[in-house]
Design a protein around this nucleic acid. Sequence first.
DNA 1: TTGTAGGCGTTATCAG
DNA 2: CTGATAACGCCTACAA
Lengths: 350, 350
Amino acid sequence: MRNRFDGGDVVTLRDVARRAGVSTSTVSHVLNGTRPVSEELRRRVLDAMHELGYEPNAVARSLKVNRSNTIGLIISDISNPFFTAVVRGVEDVAQARGYTVILCNSDEDVAKETTYLKVLRSKRVDGLILAPAGRPHEYLRNLVKADFPLVFLDRDIEGLGVAAVLLDNEGAARQAVRHLVDLGHRRIGMITGRPSISTTTERLAGYLAALREAGLPVDERLIVSGGSSIEGGRAAANALLDLDPRPTAIFSANNLMTIGALVAIDARGLSIPEDIALVGFDDFPWSGVLRPRLTTVAQPTYELGRMAAEVLLRRLAGSRSEPPERVVLPGKLTVRESCGARPEVRQGAW
Amino acid sequence: MRNRFDGGDVVTLRDVARRAGVSTSTVSHVLNGTRPVSEELRRRVLDAMHELGYEPNAVARSLKVNRSNTIGLIISDISNPFFTAVVRGVEDVAQARGYTVILCNSDEDVAKETTYLKVLRSKRVDGLILAPAGRPHEYLRNLVKADFPLVFLDRDIEGLGVAAVLLDNEGAARQAVRHLVDLGHRRIGMITGRPSISTTTERLAGYLAALREAGLPVDERLIVSGGSSIEGGRAAANALLDLDPRPTAIFSANNLMTIGALVAIDARGLSIPEDIALVGFDDFPWSGVLRPRLTTVAQPTYELGRMAAEVLLRRLAGSRSEPPERVVLPGKLTVRESCGARPEVRQGAW
DNA sequence: TTGTAGGCGTTATCAG
DNA sequence: CTGATAACGCCTACAA
């Protein structure tokens, strides 16, 4: 039988055995170092492999051992630099441990996410890292019920008892808003993300907590959803800028929306921080070339990916009975010029 | 036998057959719609599948049909927005056609690339899209010789006769440099990329062609390698800025180096375009928030990915004997403010 | 230290 | 229209 690229017959372990004049088990054991083989035979086998250009068939192996050495990674947006850093982290760990990563993009779409979950399951990945697009759906519940090795990344879904690697979103948001308060801002707008993901709720909670601590009132009109996208961020910022009186500062709950806010502010000819201060959640790899330099809450993105992979691989190696690990990393406020100095004057405006 | 997540026995096609009281072939044919089945049996089979929660084992299927419905995609840097857009393009096409993508990051490292090639081959991917990290190595030659379905993306390796989806780098670079010439620049520095990839040579050729057309001399000191990285771009820009007389414009041959150049220029307190003009190769998704707005040669990134996937899938569907497809897309010069107006004065300086 | 043989879950070739 | 049954390429008892 010809293989599919017409290069001749595809060589199997059996061909190698025949050529080396040994049994298939010997070849297999040489391949995997799984039982002692005399130097003599080992040599013959290796030579035969080389001469024939043998390439092990991982598919057959997987079928037999019921393990694929592959993990699935489902993220919601690969064009978001947050996730690309995460992917690097996951991939580096996986590769070092002999795992391959299948990366999928859910586009924040639960249907697409479900499709990918099914495909990956069908391909018998050993485990999954998932940044869930929304509320738990039935298929996800099934996976959890079947105790399929799963780690949530970035976003959590409560009550499922799934391992997770997350950021302390509430703490980080609180820190950011408190910074604005300390600078004298009293009317602080917030652009929130998609309502269905946990980060949105938690970051909003941080915003509210910071206001409460400062004894500031909560004005509902100052809280606008930006749907976690650039365009949504732009629209939300515009809504905030339309208010009278205008907020003196905006806290944007993710990087894409921050870009949208920048665009909106710029389009009105307003300047940062003189006319309005801006603090973003998520740093940018290219923050050094943005003007003005943005104050942001940076996430340890690469580390989040690394951790998620480690938690998953630990789970794959260990026993099933251990309780699911939960890792919560802190965010880091990086102050740059987009907040401005204490705007004393503005206190009067409020 | 218990499956690996202890959720009970993993249900196979055979279990379904037993439950439905039919043969395994019938179940298989219901699953794949590959031969007529009476409505009666079809119903029983589907019910059984549902009741048992059957999930097809793609690994077993792949072993049997010698096809995995998976393609490999090896890029050199996932944190480069150029490649993330490419990935989206590839994935969208693949998904629509029922293929899964395994994404790998070579980090511009030929050794890592080779490792991934082997792993993917061993996993029996149906084909590969590759942005080669450097010169052709032996394993790659083997793949080509075996006529393994392969498509080069972004970078070419000549003489291998492999299908490729590329940009007209020379034309695009020429266009960019000519624009600078038209604005009156006479001393134009160029920051080139890694020497081992084809884009570097081609973009340099475009630069030289534009100078030649304008009757401008070539000054070797104006051509500096930036190694395709941010840091390298910074260093290269610094080298150019140290020249006396200083170039009045810089053409940077990829996006990362452009960022580096921006940093270097900014660090010296020089302003763009007054003190020095800048044109970059590759646009940024967030170009709207960069200051100054950069003039760039944009590549149709998403389209490059889409095309590469389409060429590959066409190859997988069609016969092996067709000549390898080659697609070359044009770049698009987008003029923004980083070049400045005609700098008449500078002509004197030259 | 080595070999034999059965089977992983599917598909496909035969017969009925 | 349906059912046995033999592979696909590899691993792993079990036997020698």
